[in-house]
Nucleic acid binder design. Sequence first.
RNA 1: GGGAGUAUAGCUCAGCUGGUUCAGAGCGCCUGCCUUACAAGCAGGAGGUCACUGGUUCGAUCCCUGUUACUCCCACCA
Length: 882
Amino acid sequence: MTLATKYDPRSVEEKWYAYWIEKGFFHSQVDKGRVPYTVVIPPPNVTGVLHMGHMLNNTIQDVLVRRARMQGKNACWVPGTDHASIATEAKVVKMLAEKGIDKKSLSREEFLKYAWEWKEEHGGIILKQLRRLGASCDWDRTAFTMDDIRYESVIRVFVDLYNKGLIYRGVRMVNWDPVALTAVSDEEVIYKESHSKLFYLRYYIEGSDRYIVVATTRPETILGDTAVCVHPDDERYQWLKGKKVIVPGVGRVVPIIMDEYVDREFGTGALKITPAHDINDYALGMKYGLESIDIFNDNGTLNEKGGQYEGMDRFACRKQIMCDLEAAGLVEKTEDYTNKVGHSERTDAVIEPKLSAQWFLKMDSLSKKALEVVENGTIRFHPAKFKNTYRHWLENIKDWCISRQLWWGQRIPAYYFEKDGRTHTVVAATEEEARQLAAEKYGYSGALRQDDDVLDTWFSSWLWPISLFDGIRNPGNSEINYYYPTADLVTGPDIIFFWVARMIMAGEEYLKDVPFRNVYFTGIVRDKLGRKMSKSLGNSPDPISLIDKYGADGVRVGMLLTAPAGNDLPFDESLCEQGRNFSNKLWNALRLVSGWQVADSDSQTSTLDSQLSSNSVAVQWMEQRMAQVLEEVEHCFDEYRLSEALMATYKLAWDDFCSWYLEMVKPAFGTALDRETYDATISIFSRLMLMLHPFMPFVTEEIWHQLQDSDTVSSIMTQHMPTSVFYDERFLQRFDTAREVIAGVRNIRATRGLSPKEPLKLSYLATDQRFDISGFEPIIAKLGTVSSIDSVSEKPSASLSFLVGTTECFVPMPSTIDTGEERRKLLADLQYTEGFLAGVLKKLANEKFVSGAPAAVVEKERQKQRDAESKIAALKEQIAAL
RNA sequence: GGGAGUAUAGCUCAGCUGGUUCAGAGCGCCUGCCUUACAAGCAGGAGGUCACUGGUUCGAUCCCUGUUACUCCCACCA
């Protein structure tokens, strides 16, 4: 069979992925005889499309999962999607608007029908895209945070936590998103620096022509002002005690209050109080019994309390009101000011603090346990620095606002009814149960009204590792018992609070155990300029086009090569190119090997390659080198250093295997390779594919198959990952010496203009016992094109030399050599070495060093001295010989 | 305002308990090569005061002080 010069990923990838699915290799089921290895995917938004962050994240998961599977573990990677309430609802609303349908004109049921249709149509694209990447998810288990099992789990948990007294409803100041028209949690508010203005407004004292100046960034909120506050110890304002002021432009008379909350240094030291629109003002309002005037509609426009500004948008109102105040002479001055303004994570709208009735989850007891398991190492973070972030958040945690004024999500199972002039609440999983409860507790049997709100998306995500195995509805079922806790979680540090911490809480609450043992935090994928990849910047490459261009293996390698845990990943397409080149390199190694003629030694001895003697040494070396790298790789995986593990394997394959090993055993043109070496080569090559398979699933499967007797094999996926065995370090070191000799010869050829084809006679001065190339002579001869290797006691005349360690090696000097150039080089080397020796001697002359340092260190220094001295002598001789 | 982290070759990063794995890797770059596996390649090579400053030590890229620069997280200063 002839193989194409270039590796073609496309056909190979399609073929093998279909094969893997067909054979059910990704599927896992409970098997008590095997150790489980579970990973749950961070569920992407159901309507999302794959971006580079997903690529990185899922590549890492796949590497871990495939490796575990090959280690004989029962690997189970559960995929799924998140309903992403706000994001998805916003998309559906937008889609409807494009069709000319206003959400407000629809009933809840009608809207949800559209939403589910949309989900069925557009949902799950991202999971299909993951297949292109090679993700070995157990697709039979694909879940959705709003499918029946997950929906019911969420509802049950809500009821349970309510019954435990951990969930309560209350009127609080919450973060209101005026675009999505819902409350959001503290974590969903992103504070961004913004260039705004600080306005200084005059508040006249009632019945006086004196005024005080108050600074504000939000002049429109004066419509809701119900007090002005100063510091009780502020000398400037003592005279204001008990006075009242007139809100500028509004005319309302409000009291002056005095409270230590006020920062005397800021602005004028006087603060306007708008209890309805600022969290701190709200607290002060409560403290002093102030009226709370809400001036906004839910969508951020002014309501009827806004008087003449009614119906205006809050920002338009800001401008207008300043205009009007200016005209009325009520503005003292305006300054540029930089402050942080909260934006909605989902809609980017400026968050409005708003007083409303919401559901909250108490965090005190939940967070305590969650902190403990990370502190005591039951769960390990990689990198560990995120423990700090985690601790800080949990120690300062506030109750979680879990209700959202949306329709797309799990509807809160709280039911209301009126009896005896009061509103009562019952919480139950179904309306039927709620009815019973109402009857039992309150003797009520009329109609119930269900709460309109749905739950925060994260209130379903936090159960993910449990609900995927139905561990909420069926506690103690065989799946949850077997697969939980999961092994590794791979996610971004940006959702450590949203998701990681809360999953830990849910795990402790419902299974009394952690949800995972390790958390691998990936970095953020950035572009070459260090900018975050985003749609608006247009700097995010489309992952699928990258796969089309470089192959899935190429892209995977590209992502992994520069992605140490927790570090941001400056993505550059050339990395994928490197990955693609590597695939191709492996492919061509296959082409080489499969083109070899093989001869059994007893039958066709005469046609065997004459270098046979070097082959067994080569095999021996490659085996040892592989064992060494396997050990290194195992160590890397233990510490979740995936990019290092890949790089070590990459070098083993490219440098050691291709550049050295294959060159060593490669038969001369027209000759055959002995059977023994051929078999060893196939074996080594195959194991190399196993080592690379977690990183590059497709190309390794393809090559591995071509290396086997095709009728006896199933898949590389079902093979066992090789493990490190004993290797002889001294042997490997001695081989490196031989490598240096070869490099030395090649260097001389390259720099002195010697033909690469003309054989050279090599000799060396055997003065240093560390220099031991015995057994490697045939290899040196072959790769260095050397016709003879001799140990000599004297430098041969008319020769060029190079040093390997302290040993001088020689090749005959060609007549064309430029002795002047040669002399300059040697002199420079001599000068450097003399300087080096001087440093060593100085150190040895230091009495404190000789007596203070360990004997071994001093001896090393003495060795350096001897080496330098002999090198200097050698260099001087060479110079003289010129 | 609080906390954490980073600073090593042109770029991205290793360097685990201070001492020949101490100055490394990959990419890039330079110079030769279309050597019958691979130019998506082969061979060779050049690049660094280990951010700056003091200190501890016989000895510091590594430990401690301080400085500077950048990054991230948290926080209700209008």
